[in-house]
Nucleic acid binder design. Sequence first.
DNA 1: CGGTCTCTTGAGCAGAGTCAATGAACGTGG
DNA 2: CCACGTTCATTGACTCTGCTCAAGAGACCG
Lengths: 257, 257
Amino acid sequence: MPSKEAMLAPMVRKLALRSAIDEDDKAAILALPFVRRAVDPSTYLVREGEPPTRCSFLAAGYAYRQKLTSEGARQIVSIQIPGDFIDLQNLFLGVSDHNLQTLTRASVVDIAVPALRELVLSRPAIGRAMWIDALVDASIFREWIVNVGRRDARTRIAHILCEFALRLKAAELGDSERYELPMTQEQLADAVGLTPVHVNRVLKALSDEGLIQREKRSIRVRDWDKLRSVGDFSERYLHLHADEAREEFGFPGTLTA
Amino acid sequence: MPSKEAMLAPMVRKLALRSAIDEDDKAAILALPFVRRAVDPSTYLVREGEPPTRCSFLAAGYAYRQKLTSEGARQIVSIQIPGDFIDLQNLFLGVSDHNLQTLTRASVVDIAVPALRELVLSRPAIGRAMWIDALVDASIFREWIVNVGRRDARTRIAHILCEFALRLKAAELGDSERYELPMTQEQLADAVGLTPVHVNRVLKALSDEGLIQREKRSIRVRDWDKLRSVGDFSERYLHLHADEAREEFGFPGTLTA
DNA sequence: CGGTCTCTTGAGCAGAGTCAATGAACGTGG
DNA sequence: CCACGTTCATTGACTCTGCTCAAGAGACCG
């Protein structure tokens, strides 16, 4: 059993990536009341309609956010990878508006909502880091609307494959060469708004053309430039360097009024 | 020319809806450096790729967020109505990932980013209100992914019409009977991921069936229950009572660990 | 070794797109 | 006050991308 401190370390690291966390901030984080638990694949972490019971950090494993239509169709609205906060909206909203489910076996750190909320509001460096996290999430949602709304099947799938490549690389869980993608084709289909059958055909085509190579539950990218181009992919929306960005611009504060 | 105070009043009102703003908070808001300007329809307020120059509040008029694909297709990812903060992501992100354009003539209050950021991080009540705002935005993005990804044309359009009805009602700009919708069918098409031609046909069908009635640039809802049902609409994702919700639940803080 | 998922592939279908033409509404300037 | 240009809405005819249904093949697990 690792120490409490070791369990929260990945979270500190994540926040430190986004904002300058000092020793006091770090201590405050390590003092948070939390529980770590191991979770089986396909377990619901949050259900739509439930009041929030906790705010969680995904220490290991994969998860996804999902909503169901009255017809029973499922749309996956985001994929969460190790190192993601997965319940930020619980911090300030009263009822969950979507389902959150594990994709794989996972390790989740549940943090008491009031304590975390207090931290976010009272410690600017932490608040800032969490803000960036939430805003990047929102940016990814926007891109997904575009992906699903205005791109054809081939482009959509290439796009999401590029997104995973870069996000996993940024999380040091792969590179643009090869990465783990623990999703079935049915789940992939629900993420891009297509049917599993059609996803299968498109993946085969991308594979036949030498853009990617499919291995059990991972993807090898054979031709990044072409995949990127087929997928109409630009990484801007991932804000991978959100930490540096603001400093560079020096916060132009003067309004020419 | 209204006083500076009068110009910021709608913003104070909006924040007060979401969190308990006290006199000091109010004073701090009123002390913000800002500029108000009138903007023509179809004006770009933010362009993708630009560094943020300001953070804005939409005091009057309508706007939308939009992204273009390399094929030249446009996807509208959100519609903003009077009383919305329209540049929250500029607060902490370095480069804009989408375009923001006015739909109608509008009145925009531009606030200096550093001052607002400071306010958000240092005044918990204001920070909380802004958090709620950002999280509700994200929730709407999620619902739009579902709308565009998993619903057929008829359902999609009925859904978005329901969304507007409730959001405008909440902003006291209409009721579930009738509201202003200053969008062309082409813009509506770009918001729901369809073609203008098809949107036209579906609107006609909804109209012929007596669910709605179209007037110049406004919508009269003739049969709310049926529209809601056709649109697979549930208002939960709008978090219209985000202000009350958290209090009701008393922030269950105890983790049974 | 049987059962259950997941992946593949084929055949036919249909919802939404494309192309194109016409009509209505509106603002502007003569 | 009317003619004109522009933008937006409407409708028809035809096409095509992605869906449905269905069956078979692997892969994995107890």
